[in-house]
Computed example of a mutant assay.
Amino acid sequence: MAAVIERIDSLEQTVQDFVRNADVQFNRLYNSQLQTEAELRLFKDEMRVFKDEMRVFKDEMRDFKDETRRQLREMNKKWGELSNKLGTLVEDLVAPSLPRIIEERLNEPAYDLMVRLKRRLPDGRVKEFDALVVTPDCVCLNSTKATLRSGDVDGFVADIAEFRTFFPEHDALPLVGILASLSVEKNVLTYAEKQGFLVLAVGDELMEVKNRPGFEPRRW
C-alpha cells in the first residue's frame, strides 16, 4: 500500500503541474491579439470548469490516500499484535526496519544487523539484547517491548551501561539507543527523549520514528 500512496502523490503532482501549465498557456492566449473576445471568454469559462473539476479530483485523491494510509497502519498494527503473540515482534517488524531508519535519521549506512544477541560471561552472568546494528561510526542497540513504559526506559539505560561489559568488541564506537513498541504514549515518548533515545512504533512502513522533528539521539 505504501507504493500506492507514492503513486497517488505522483499523480497529484502531475495534475498540479498540468493546471499550472494550463494557467500559463491561458495567460498567453488571453493576451494574444489573434483571438476574438468571444473565443477568449469561452476558453476562460472552460478553464474555470476544468480547474473546479481538478480541485474535486485532488480532494478525492487526498481522501483516498488518507484512507489507504489508515488501512496500512491498521494492517501493520494487527501484524504487530500477531507477531507479539508469537514472540517474533523483533524479527517481523523491528529488525527489518532498523537499517532504513538508521540510514534516514543518522545518515549512516547499516552494514551489520544482528538479532537476539546473547552472551554468557565466565562468571556466569548472562545478557540478551533484542537487536544490534553496526555502522561505520556508531553502534545502534535496540530494545523492543510490546507495551513501552517508563520503567522500560530506565531498564534500557541500565542495559546500555552493561553492554560493553558483555560486548567489549564494540568499545571503539559510540552507542545509540533505539526503543521500539507497537505504540507509544506521549508521556513515555517524552521521557525516552529526555534520556536520549530514538523511539519507534508501528507506522506506514512497518516501524516509524516517533521522536519530534530534529531530535538528535544521545551518543553513549
Rank of each mutant, 00 (worst) to 15 (best):
L200F: 01
F167M: 10
A192V: 00
E185G: 01
N211G: 07
A161I: 04
E128P: 01
S183G: 10
L200E: 10
K194V: 02
L148G: 02
S143M: 14
S143G: 13
D152Q: 03
T147P: 02
Q195Y: 02
K127S: 11
L175Q: 08
T190S: 10
Y191M: 10
F163Y: 08
A131R: 06
G177M: 06
L206M: 12
V176M: 12
D130G: 06
F163L: 05
L173S: 07
G151Y: 06
E208V: 01
G177P: 03
A158Q: 15
A192T: 04
L148H: 04
F197S: 14
F167L: 13
N142K: 01
R149H: 12
Q195R: 11
F129R: 04
D130N: 10
C138M: 08
Q195C: 07
L182W: 06
V153K: 00
R125E: 15
G151F: 05
D152W: 00
S143F: 05
D154A: 04
E208Q: 04
N211P: 03
R149V: 09
H170R: 11
F167T: 00
P168Q: 15
L200I: 01
V184A: 12
V157L: 10
Y191W: 07
V153Q: 05
V126K: 09
V176L: 07
A161Q: 11
S143Q: 13
R164W: 03
P136C: 05
L173T: 04
L182V: 00
S143A: 15
D159Q: 13
T165P: 10
D159C: 10
H170E: 15
L179H: 03
D154L: 09
A158E: 12
E169P: 08
E169F: 14
P168E: 15
L200D: 11
V188N: 14
H170N: 15
D171H: 11
N211D: 11
A192R: 05
V134H: 01
E205K: 05
F197G: 15
E193C: 00
A172R: 05
E205L: 03
K186I: 08
D171P: 05
L173V: 08
E169G: 06
H170V: 15
V153H: 04
R164T: 09
V184L: 12
V157S: 15
E162D: 07
V188R: 05
F166H: 08
E193M: 08
I160G: 02
R164Y: 09
M207C: 03
T147E: 13
K145L: 11
L189V: 03
S150W: 01
L189P: 00
A201D: 11
A158T: 14
C140P: 02
N187H: 10
E208M: 02
A172E: 12
V139F: 01
K186D: 15
G203Y: 00
E205A: 05
C140R: 12
A131S: 10
C140L: 11
L189F: 00
A158D: 15
F166W: 09
